[in-house]
């Protein structure tokens, strides 16, 4: 459906990748760790390697969680936009197929949050 308006209605998306000065948005969700109240929204360089993303962005983001030291993200189960995904740590994000406003979900089996509460 579309907007029911009094005249012709045209709108531009506000968050096109061009508006991010060469960067792009990446969302990351770590299930069973809802102490982080929502998936993270990160600003990333598309040519950053996946390995660098894990070390430089993801690990500092989750550092406040008691499970973070036990989490082996490179050997975890990943979803990219809800589909199974095997990241190549040496390849760039874009070459891994991670485009603007993509969502990564990373499950770390055995880690169930604070006292197993999924927090």
């Amino acid at each position: 459906m579309s907007v029911n308006a009094i005249s012709e209605y045209h709108a531009e998306p506000k968050d096109r990748v061009e508006n991010f000065n060469g960067m792009q948005l990446l969302y990351v969700y770590w299930p069973k760790h809802l102490m982080f109240c929502a998936p993270f929204a990160l600003l990333v360089a598309p040519d950053m390697t996946f390995g660098a993303f894990v070390d430089e962005l993801l690990k500092p983001a989750v550092a406040g969680h008691p499970d973070s030291e036990k989490a082996d993200f490179l050997n975890a189960q990943w979803l990219l936009n809800d589909e199974a995904f095997t990241p190549d740590p040496a390849a760039t994000l874009i070459d891994n197929g991670i485009d603007h406003k993509s969502m990564l979900t990373v499950t770390t089996p055995g880690l169930e949050g604070i006292q197993g509460s999924a927090s």
Binding site: F36, C37, A41, G64, M103
Partner: peptide
């Protein structure tokens, strides 16, 4: 004291 140092998805 815990503060989340990233921004959230909206």
């Amino acid at each position: 004291r815990f503060y989340n140092n990233t921004l959230p998805q909206l």
